[in-house]
């Protein structure tokens, strides 16, 4: 606040000097140009391309081309995996962060846990898939252990690493730490006095959580949920390295499409990518809407 007024005052101050406001804007031109060229325009290109015929005319054919059962199924399973891994990531990450912040565990655990979360949330992509193949794959550590030592055959139980649950479990490896990283500061922000004020006013622990702590955390929780969803929805590398192309999810479909392996219709590619933007866009719109509702009490 104070810097803002100071700056404005300064902008107007020196007598005899022009007030060259546009000069101020020159400072952000490089950044604006970069963002425009390498973030906004490429995205716009996809959006527009989704509604264009090869020679530039308007069409809805590309988008309506998405409505085939196999593509719809791909979207559906992508959304399911992303949503499930986001929800589970939120719940488990929350439980772990709460255990450390509020559960009375030694403070010494925090630093290492946060560092580890930083590492694990960045340990995504191809190597992560390898790690899970080596663990839960057909000859993985846990699979073999369960089969030879306990006589439990994961395959017979219907578990397969190249499946919905396999991918979800793998994604949790970066989803949970991301949640921990984001929610720990939020949990730290819960003041001890709020809990004490609630309890001296007669509230039980559950009432405190339902009426005070949860509503205060809700904006962060929703934001993280939206972020985790987008994070899983756009994850290409892990999925490809884990399943090859055996699992029919959108990012793999789009990847193959761009590579020219499968569909061969470039404008269907636009539509596929556009669909991804729409899905993450809707997820974030829901988030923004819920946040606005849950955050009336914030500035």
């Amino acid at each position: 606040m104070s810097t803002q007024t100071a700056t404005q005052a300064k902008g107007a101050a020196p007598p005899g000097q022009f007030r060259r406001l546009p000069m101020h804007w020159l400072g952000v031109v490089p950044f604006a140009a970069f963002v425009l060229l390498f973030l906004i325009l490429p995205t716009m290109k996809i959006v527009i391309g989704a509604f264009q015929t090869p020679d530039g005319g308007f069409t809805l054919a590309n988008v309506s081309g998405l409505f085939t059962s196999s593509i719809l199924a791909a979207y559906w399973i992508s959304i399911k995996i992303s949503f499930t891994s986001a929800i589970l990531g939120c719940l488990i990450g929350f439980a772990m962060a709460a255990a450390v912040v509020l559960g009375g565990l030694p403070r010494a655990i925090r630093g290492p846990l946060l560092t580890f979360s930083g590492v694990a949330s960045n340990f995504a992509g191809v190597p992560l898939a390898f790690a899970f193949l080596a663990t839960l794959g057909p000859v993985g550590l846990v699979t073999v252990f369960l089969r030879s030592e306990l006589g439990i055959d994961l395959r017979l139980l219907g578990f397969n690493i190249l499946s919905f649950w396999g991918l979800t479990i793998t994604y949790l490896f970066f989803q949970i730490p991301l949640m921990i990283l984001i929610i720990t500061p939020a949990l730290d922000g819960l003041k001890r006095e709020w809990r004490e004020a609630a309890s001296i006013l007669g509230a039980t622990n559950a009432q405190y959580w339902r009426l005070v702590a949860f509503p205060i955390l809700l904006p962060s929780l929703l934001g993280t949920l939206a972020l985790l969803f987008a994070n899983a929805f756009g994850a290409v590398a892990t999925a490809i390295a884990l399943t090859g192309s055996s699992l029919n999810i959108v990012p793999i479909l789009l990847f193959a499409q761009i590579r020219g392996d499968v569909l061969g219709d470039p404008h269907l590619g636009y539509a596929l990518a556009f669909g991804m933007i729409v899905v993450t866009g809707i997820a974030n719109a829901i988030y923004i809407w819920l946040r606005a509702r849950s955050e009336r009490w914030l500035k």
């Binding site: 490429p42 996809i46 939206a226 987008a230 756009g234 990012p251 990847f255 590619g269 990518a273 933007i277």
Partner: peptide, 18 residues
């Protein structure tokens, strides 16, 4: 924060086309 929300595969597809 947009790059966290727009999938990388979409962005690079845009590059290739643009």
């Amino acid at each position: 924060l947009l790059p966290l929300v727009i999938p990388a595969i979409v962005i690079v597809f845009g590059y290739i086309r643009l």
